[in-house]
């Protein structure tokens, strides 16, 4: 009897893990099989034509890259700076607790609320309008807690002996951080940053009303222009288009490019971390 319970119990756990793997494979398989036929050089590099029933996704690709760059520029320096403070300077106390608690809560704020904040602050308050800049800044705020958390972890994993050795040689705190701590934490920070930015690239809700456009016949020429984005394009093709069934293959193609882009960034990050761990073990 005991034996039966044991077997059933452990197999239930296996089943749970299997269900998760199954979900991942169904998602990737369906997108790959249905999306692959739509992908061609022309699909990637041409504009949507004839009311988005034909043609490609070029402006959406460019728009996503553009907005992601702005996100990176505004969130990485701020995030890494905050992480350096928390890891190297902060003393346990009231202020530090408030900062840490804010970061955890920011990470839990729904993305649509960031979207509302982006509308109120960047679009209306600072009068950036619906633009790449507004959307990029909104996504930057969303990514910030993630970057801080992973960068702090990377900084904390730098052995204390590195710092002590540097101080012993007469280096100041900032010199130590700049020439010892940051270089050895760099791969870890890079991993976290890529993961954070890849999430931002796939987000839709925060850019819905801060700058993404349904269709544009041209690429954004300044940060104050509207832009097309891959995730928003997929949303439009699958729910807002006048001929949803007719453009399904385009939607699958867009989904494949989007997932491919995001997962490729993820994979790079995971590989960097994997090599890092191996190095540390040796």
């Amino acid at each position: 009897m005991k034996n039966l319970e044991e077997v059933i119990g452990l197999y239930t756990l296996r089943l749970c893990a299997f269900l998760v793997v199954l979900a991942i494979f169904v998602i990737l398989y369906d997108i790959l099989v249905q999306g692959m036929p739509a992908i061609s050089w022309e699909f990637l590099t041409s504009y949507p034509r004839e009311g988005m029933t034909k043609g490609g996704i070029w402006p959406a690709v460019v728009g996503t890259v553009y907005v992601t760059l702005i996100t990176a520029i505004c969130s990485i320096p701020l995030g890494v700076g905050a992480a350096i403070y928390l890891s190297e300077y902060a003393r346990e106390g009231w202020t530090t607790r408030v900062i840490r608690s804010s970061i955890r809560n920011l990470a839990g704020v729904p993305s649509i609320v960031y979207g509302l904040f982006g509308v109120a602050l960047f679009v209306e308050g600072l009068r950036f309008g619906t633009s790449v800049l507004s959307a990029g800044l909104t996504l930057g705020l969303l990514t910030l807690p993630w970057i801080i958390a992973t960068a702090e972890e990377a900084l904390k994993s730098v052995p204390q002996t590195y710092r002590e050795a540097s101080y012993a040689l007469g280096a100041t705190k900032w010199q130590t951080i700049r020439s010892q701590v940051l270089p050895s934490a760099f791969p870890g920070i890079l991993t976290g940053t890529i993961l954070g930015i890849s999430r931002a690239a796939g987000e839709t809700a925060p850019i819905l009303f801060t700058g993404a456009a349904f269709y544009l016949p041209h690429l954004p020429s300044s940060p104050f222009d509207q832009f097309m984005a891959l995730p928003y394009h997929l949303f439009n093709l699958s729910t807002q288009h006048h001929d949803i069934e007719g453009v399904r293959h385009l939607a699958y193609g867009t989904a494949m490019v989007l997932i491919g882009l995001v997962l490729a960034m993820n994979l790079v990050a995971i590989l960097i971390r994997y090599r890092l761990r191996k190095q540390k073990r040796n």
């Binding site: 998760v20 979900a23 991942i24 998602i27 369906d30 997108i31 993961l195 890849s198 999430r199 690239a201 796939g202 987000e203 839709t204 809700a205 995730p231 928003y232 997929l234 949303f235 699958s238 939607a251 989904a255 989007l258 997932i259 995001v262 997962l263 960034m265 993820n266 994979l267 995971i270």
Partner: peptide, 14 residues
């Protein structure tokens, strides 16, 4: 982790 990286709009599409 890869599953965590799949954008929500793609999950909605599926």
């Amino acid at each position: 982790e890869l599953l965590a990286g799949v954008p929500s709009v793609a999950i909605g599409f599926l």
